[in-house]
Design a binder for these strands. Sequence first.
DNA 1: TTAACATAGTTGCACCTGCAACTAATTAAA
DNA 2: TTTAATTAGTTGCAGGTGCAACTATGTTAA
Lengths: 149, 149
Amino acid sequence: MQEIRFENTVLPCLGKTAKLAGFYFTDMFHENNIDLSKEQWLVLKKLHDNDGMVQNDLAFITDRSKTSLSRLIQTMEKRDYVVRVHSKSDKRINHVFLTQKGKDIFIKSLPVLNQIMSELTCGISRNDLESTVRVLHHIQENINKKENK
Amino acid sequence: MQEIRFENTVLPCLGKTAKLAGFYFTDMFHENNIDLSKEQWLVLKKLHDNDGMVQNDLAFITDRSKTSLSRLIQTMEKRDYVVRVHSKSDKRINHVFLTQKGKDIFIKSLPVLNQIMSELTCGISRNDLESTVRVLHHIQENINKKENK
DNA sequence: TTAACATAGTTGCACCTGCAACTAATTAAA
DNA sequence: TTTAATTAGTTGCAGGTGCAACTATGTTAA
């Protein structure tokens, strides 16, 4: 029975890969003059799918605390990518909308994003990719089961 | 040809899984009264493998900037997990050593870590795990190739 | 109706992060 | 040898993060 080094087990390997991919993402966006952090990009993506989302829901689907999302939106509002609009029916709620500038930069980012995704998965068979996604989903389910215990 | 939703492609899925696993890691450490961030844990791990490493090398193998590592060590030194020792042969260099407290908490963390790893990979075949690690390594290589272009 | 509870969002605090610019020390070149 | 380039580490700055505590609003129960 062969010993497996810690670094070559899934979880550490997963963390390192995500980290390196994050660096690559940041570099590519920078090289292409797209002034967006990966966190900001994800928010734009979710708003592009469903504009006008409530802040709280946006926090939930991006897996961050409402605090973190609040500050992310604050920064993005300063840069004129999004606007917060108070709901009239429930004064506690903010809806978040893309601005034109937000829409434009998101559209501009798409080819870069596609390039990143194809470059990083270059040489990996479709079968292996699907298998990996299945394993990742399985890990996510294991986490959800434990968290809701 | 079936369309694949963005969220179910490898890279976004990878990011989300790493994030959720990070939450789980943090929660488990907290529940077990282990006062270590995941970043700090990784530094202890590397020092446990190779005590007295130079700060710069520690930054390199943990994939962070020397700035980030510098501040991480600073925090850990305040908590008495590590000590910085100036090299006599080259006064620019700091060697970083585990303290007894650092060694103790690392040893204490190991069973918790093993539990996390086995819980999160529960129900996934050894074969699938190995295949996933291979794919992750492949992605890392793709990144390295591009970064060094 | 009033009091108790729940919810959305913000703020203080502490931490992790990278870049650019800096100091101090070392090494290489002129 | 003196100067120039390099290297290790730190600091200022700006940003992302979560927790606990807070405000304001909304809902439910007594």
